[in-house]
Design a protein around this nucleic acid. Structure first.
Lengths: 110, 110
DNA sequence: TTCTTTTATCGTAATATTGCAATATACAAA
DNA sequence: TTTGTATATTGCAATATTACGATAAAAGAA
């Protein structure tokens, strides 16, 4: 049905999935990588950098803002996007923790 | 259009996004967490554990198999699923690396 | 062989996502 | 005010995803 049955999963499972889902598009990866590189925040440069239309970039930025990874500050006519460090650290912790669920034991497979 | 323009992104960006996308559903997180817990591999137990129908679980397992996270071995009537350690280590490296793109500098925001 | 169990696949319905043109909004400059 | 610039929103088309019932396929048990 295209709709995820979030109710049957734990908060933690939904959280991990939500973070991963937002990172699950190359345009959003490209946006984050570019912001990481240029340090000081960007806006419509992303439209030139990445080959997508302005509304499309704007939509991806919105999703990154929605879960708190990015924050946008109005700077004159343009909007300056940059990383929300606190959220990024939180995401790192959540994902690191998840990625380590298999690490405590050696591979015992069938 | 629902279709991602993968061509305009780098291999690395597509790879990261593809991994994240597969992890972007709570059912697949739940499946991985359960396999991590029970060590030795499971099959239809997941249907009981998680509250989804058997075809739905089977579909999620397929996606996890497709990118190589899980492998399934036939064991009598049932199929035994388990982690592909090599792939998981690879995923860990890829994601760790990506999660650290912001770590080298302090926050300078607008 | 037939029955049972287990998992995969097919088909379908409902919803979500991606992408963009058109348009709206906000604000600074002339 | 009008003009230009930058970004967001709306509306839509195309495709993808999620979920499940029905069914198929595979293999052991009776």
């Amino acid at each position: 049905m295209g709709v995820t049955k979030s109710e049957i999963f734990s908060q933690s499972q939904n959280d991990i999935a939500q973070i991963a889902k937002v990172l699950g598009h190359p345009a959003r990866i490209a946006i984050l990588e570019h912001i990481a590189k240029v340090k000081t925040c960007i806006c419509g440069d992303l439209v030139n950098e990445i080959g997508l239309a302005q509304p499309t970039i704007s939509q991806h930025l919105k999703e990154l803002k929605n879960i708190g990874i990015l924050k946008g500050n109005i700077e004159g006519t343009s909007i300056c996007y940059c990383l929300n460090n606190e959220k990024w650290e939180e995401i790192k912790i959540v994902l690191h923790q998840f990625l380590n669920i298999f690490s405590n034991t050696s591979s015992n497979c069938c």
